[in-house]
Computed example of a mutant assay.
Amino acid sequence: MSNLESALIQLQCELVAERNLVNPNGLSWLQYDILNLLRKRGSSSPTQLSEQLHIRPSKFSKTIKELKENCYITQSVSQQDGRGLMTTLSESGKDFLDSVDAGHTFLYETATEIFNPEEQQLFTQLANLLTHALEQERTSDQ
């Protein structure tokens, strides 16, 4: 195993551990990802969300139902076609993400303590480059 591969695996493990620490409500990763995606998009149809996250419609439907029952999202009839649903982040969903964001502050503070300004800039550029490549790979499969 290369040093790069080992470092990426270790980073992923640490980020998973951090994610588990800042999730006080015990939402699943899929639920968190849906909420976070809705925060970025504003609103979206369930089909668009499931396609972007590469989730089977049956599993996605159950997850959306749970988020709606727990008041993290709202759904309304689409203004565009009148048949489909549009899913939006509720105030409770926004509050949850805000609390998770507060927990993520620890990651930022740690990075600013261990990286000098030049390293922070380099890390940011490299992380964004890798993130973009991973997103492109996922979306090109659609």
Rank of each mutant, 00 (worst) to 15 (best):
K62P: 00
L97A: 06
D101W: 01
S61K: 13
T105Q: 08
I64E: 09
Y32S: 08
F106E: 10
I73F: 14
L85F: 07
S44Q: 12
N36W: 11
I64V: 15
G82C: 12
E66G: 04
N36I: 03
S44G: 10
G82W: 11
M86E: 11
I73V: 15
S99G: 00
L49R: 00
P57W: 02
Q79A: 11
S44H: 10
L37A: 15
F96C: 08
S78K: 01
R83A: 06
S43E: 13
D33K: 13
G82D: 10
F106L: 13
R41C: 05
S50P: 01
T74P: 00
L53Q: 04
S99N: 10
T105A: 09
L97T: 04
S90M: 08
Q75I: 06
R83F: 08
G82L: 14
S45R: 12
D101K: 06
T74K: 11
L97R: 03
L30H: 06
G82T: 08
Y32W: 02
K59C: 01
S61A: 14
G42W: 11
A102Q: 07
N70K: 15
S44F: 01
R56A: 13
S28C: 07
M86Q: 09
S61N: 14
T74I: 04
A102V: 01
L38E: 05
S44C: 09
Q80V: 11
D101G: 15
M86C: 04
Y72A: 09
G84T: 12
H54S: 13
P57D: 04
A102K: 03
G82V: 09
